[in-house]
Write a protein that binds this DNA or RNA. Structure first.
Lengths: 343, 343
DNA sequence: CAGAATATTTTACGCGCGTAAAAGAAATTA
DNA sequence: TAATTTCTTTTACGCGCGTAAAATATTCTG
């Protein structure tokens, strides 16, 4: 490929026998020049080593091709997986993903947004922290820059929101648990950082009432994003105190369930659906490791791909048409029951 | 804070009663102007809403303040954790981290490097894929741009390398296992994507010989990064075929061990160190979830923080002095035994 | 093949900032 | 207070590209 290094577009223009503005047009959109011209350019591109200076391009363009992606916690496998999938999708559409993690810290969330702002992104995909997010500042950002929220909604902030239908998904698993054994108690964080947790709380309550059962809540206090630890500690406490009101526990998410499973195991409680079980434990999300817990975790899957894919598609639509929707779109994807061995 | 929006440095200069070059100097390094001047600038910064245009800055600066970070697989908790820690460290030093994942694909690894190249980063931290990496292209990149490798070395490519001392860490756990029970068989991938796996293989062999034992290898074929799945499938096969040569298995990494644990559990094998155990399983890395497996996983910790921290420190040193070392530095951190319940 | 439609070139300007050199002002030293 | 050092201003140029308008060339249509 490239042998001779070319400094700038001017030089490359004369080498390829074309004018600089034509090349500028080509680099903005290869389809915008005649096919014969395009062939010439691409031949020259093959012969010489030249790439336009991104900074000079972005300085003058109305719109960069940067897409910001902000997740609340990168070490959470759910978000790592989403980020991993989003990256190539962006690239395929000719956009440049900028991945940032808030690390569970509302200040960092805002810092990330401000740092994105200075990059003049075409748009951003934001999975907010949730209840602790600084709402006013988020809204100000969304007003200035096309932003699609996913995973967790903040009122009707942002041009659109894509997430899971917690009402449906919790409904499905509560119904399943009630049908196949004792009705489940609901294990959750007392101060959940994420409004999804509140929705799941409400969904559980509704589903239990619908099944003619009395809701039972088990609430752990614990801070931040160390869900497994919280699940383990509070789970141990409950088991040791024999404070479980039923033999079935539905955890607000799989990470809590993983911790609870560890607690049950260490306290010699046999978890599962086979005869002689002492406890059934179910989760929510279909975490990448749910398949490998002992026993494997019964849960409700979140449609990761649909959520990530739709969010990006929606954002790119806004970016490419250049018109922001006047109404806040919102779409919730249904979860499906994943029956394994733990419940 | 900022009320009136200021377009450019020129305008901000006149508003703050200073000259543009002085401001330019300030934004490059606040310490380079007199304290009284700095106070004036910061007062103005408080009063008006102005941030320099990054693109214009980077266009003309010899050096950007971008640090590229490339990891082989973002959904691997080890790398997610490293990335999560690296981000704020960069920011604290006034650098801007750009996080990219190779997703296990050598082509993407090179694409990521090329995409970084166009951003003219001050330096990059690279955890390469390993054996599948395109070595020649990596080296070309490292010649052009200050690059520190971590986790996995590729010959002596890069200005420096920071990783784990596999010889020592495997030695420690092999010695422990031999001392406390039957000598371990070594469970690994047949075609490991990562040279660390080869080093661990050799380290196991050496440690076993040193302990006067015959090395025993259990090799799974499986592709890519789905280690848990591979560990589970091959583990099930071995257990069902009663093909384990000893009651102790040392897995090349924790993710394999997590899969193996699941296989043992499903096949009714009691794993652990207490009396009556059928199997002992150990891992390597101290994966974030190793604490929560059933039973909790005995393993050797990698010093994540030291590896990530030292790599960044080294890179920033190179960047800030502007001189690249003439010899390839290499530092290996020792792992420490983490005794839990599985072995 | 003429005329219309479309692409390309030319020309010219602007973006927002870095940077260098010389001149001027302020702070420090003796 | 004068001399010296240090910092700031002025002036001027350049970076690599976007973009607009008018002139020119190419391709398409009938």
């Amino acid at each position: 490929m490239g042998e001779q290094r070319v400094r700038n577009m001017e030089e490359f223009a004369s080498l390829s026998g074309l004018s600089r503005p034509t090349l500028s047009k080509y680099f903005n959109d290869p389809q915008s020049v005649r096919a014969s011209t395009r062939a010439k350019i691409e031949a020259a591109l093959d012969q010489y080593d030249y790439t336009p200076n991104i900074y000079a391009m972005n300085q003058n363009r109305r719109l960069t091709r940067n897409i910001g992606i902000i997740v609340p916690y990168l070490a959470d496998p759910f978000f790592a997986e989403v980020a991993r999938n989003l990256e190539p999708l962006c690239a395929q559409s000719g956009f440049n993903p900028i991945l940032l993690s808030s690390n569970g810290d509302p200040d960092r969330e805002i810092e990330n947004l401000e740092s994105l702002r200075s990059i003049k992104p075409a748009g951003v995909l934001l999975a907010p922290l949730g209840r602790r997010s600084r709402r006013a500042e988020l809204e100000r950002f969304c007003n200035d820059i096309p932003t699609v929220l996913f995973d967790c909604a903040i009122g009707d902030t942002g041009d659109a929101f894509f997430g899971s239908n917690n009402l449906q998904s919790i409904g499905v698993i509560v119904e399943y648990l009630c049908r196949t054994g004792e009705p489940p108690a609901f294990f959750e964080m007392k101060d959940a950082p994420n409004p999804n947790a509140n929705k799941r709380h409400a969904a559980y309550e509704a589903a239990m009432l619908a099944a003619g059962q009395e809701p039972m809540f088990l609430q752990a206090d614990g801070d931040g994003w160390a869900f497994e630890q919280t699940g383990y500690e509070h789970g141990s406490r409950l088991i040791k105190a024999r404070a479980l009101p039923t033999d079935t526990v539905l955890c607000s998410n799989d990470r809590l369930a993983i911790g609870f499973l560890a607690a049950a195991y260490e306290n010699g409680l046999r978890v599962g659906i086979d005869d002689g079980h002492a406890l059934r434990i179910a989760g929510h999300d279909d975490h990448p490791y749910a398949r490998f817990t002992c026993p494997s975790l019964t849960t409700v899957s979140q449609n990761y791909e649909a959520i990530a894919g739709s969010s990006l598609e929606c954002l790119l639509g806004i970016v490419e048409t250049g018109t922001r929707p006047d109404s806040h779109e919102e779409k919730l994807f249904e979860g499906s029951l994943v029956m394994r061995k733990s419940a």
